[in-house]
Design a protein around this nucleic acid. Structure first.
Lengths: 243, 243
DNA sequence: CCGGTTAAGATTATCGATATCGATTTTGAA
DNA sequence: TTCAAAATCGATATCGATAATCTTAACCGG
């Protein structure tokens, strides 16, 4: 499988319109995209040199990207024996949904109280972009925008060390959903869902916002990964009480 | 604050007794140790070059370590402006306890059914080492052994992509507890707790094991971070129902 | 034919040097 | 004097080369 940089800048550093974009970030996003779209399959080896050539950067830069992907849980690095793409089992995906519900529920209560008009506007803009991505059938962009929406919202809760955990969970849930989707029909209700959520947040009612986001996540799972619902039920009948 | 390598190997690669130990790992552990012990305080800057000199390795190797620490949430990298040590607020620590309870409860049910005698023996050995660390008042080693114990146990659940999340949470909880501890008295019951847990696991009763680990975690929190208990209660009165 | 040792090839790990960036200070002309 | 452009400085980001390591396959004595 070959990984392509999304934009190829010639090397006039002084007038590069894409300065400020670090190559390491570009490499990270390129490989991540390839994995999330299933273009590089679980188990497939990722070679630092090869990717470096494809992306026009050095091995060290790719190494940095792979290191980050390992922490995201998307690849497994096996020392001198190479790096391979990981998988997400249904059980893992279900647990990540649980964590996400737990973390986002707490987060949105804080966010609802501290969020400003400017951020709400930004979130509305992202939601519009998402409508566009849905119309263009660009599922990857759709998933990126969804993560961005949730992450910006969560950032308002000022719990920074939980952000990477939430991001990880969202990443894995998206990948699982995408790779196991039974249907690929575009879904405009996605954006409507976010708008409804923004509406509730606007009322500054933490409890309502909390319920709203839980139902949002629940609906998305039901719509895109009905198999996960089954697994989640199985978990709950085991009675995962909290302390 | 200065960071020291724990062992200094001369450079005869062929006869190095510590071969197989990568310098990057050494750097990662050295810096992490320094942060967890509070020797480098939150907000304190970490300079790649300076650490490289202290650890006798190159900047790139330290860079790799800092990258990993960022993913652990222990440092914040601010591009060309340097890296600083992060903090863990009480709210964040409380959320991490919740996540840990959620994840480990599920994990131990699986582990209880699939764990082998050899692993149980390994865990018992780690517990003995922990007794020793407690007697030596070596709290860092104690916390490392505790994490190792829980991680090995969780690994048996075969949910690999959740392992980094659990590890992160355990790391942050340990740091929070250590830096906010009101008492530092050694505690042999720590090891006894683990032995009791192993006993329950030996009965192969998943539900009992689940209760056992929840009570284990609860006891540790109560013992070392009573302030966290208060915060956890606050969370629960908000009614964090799951879907 | 076979078990073990070693050589070769492929890949990661580490290094030292250089390019780039962002903040601060200096400069210089209005 | 003042303010914007330029030089400076401390630091990261990237590179290309080399060392260390693992895997595989060739080799060899029995």
């Amino acid at each position: 499988m070959s990984i392509h940089a999304q934009s190829q800048a010639a090397h006039q550093p002084r007038f590069d319109p894409l300065r400020n974009v670090k190559k390491g970030d570009a490499a990270y996003h390129a490989v991540r995209r390839s994995i999330l779209l299933g273009h590089t399959q679980p188990g497939e080896p990722l070679l630092e040199q090869r990717i470096a050539e494809q992306l026009n950067c050095s091995q060290g830069t790719v190494r940095e990207a792979l290191l980050r992907l390992e922490q995201d849980g998307l690849v497994l690095r096996r020392g001198y024996r190479g790096t391979v793409v990981s998988t997400t089992s249904m059980q893992e995906a279900a647990q990540m949904v649980e964590i996400r519900l737990q973390v986002e529920s707490t987060g949105i209560r804080q966010s609802t109280m501290s969020i400003g008009r400017d951020i709400l506007a930004e979130l509305a803009a992202i939601t519009s972009d998402m409508d566009e991505a849905v119309r263009a059938l660009d599922f990857y962009r759709c998933s990126e925008l969804d993560r961005e929406f949730h992450m910006i919202l969560f950032r308002q809760a000022a719990l920074p060390s939980l952000e990477p955990i939430l991001n990880r969970c969202a990443l894995h849930i998206h990948r699982f959903t995408y790779l196991n989707a039974e249907t690929m029909e575009p879904e405009l209700s996605f954006g409507d869902n976010h708008r409804a959520l923004l509406g509730v947040i606007g009322t500054r009612d933490p409890a309502a916002a909390c319920e709203s986001i839980k139902s949002h996540i629940g609906h998305v799972i039901e719509r895109w990964a009905p198999l996960l619902v089954q697994e989640l039920d199985r978990i709950h009948t085991h009675g995962t009480g909290l302390l």
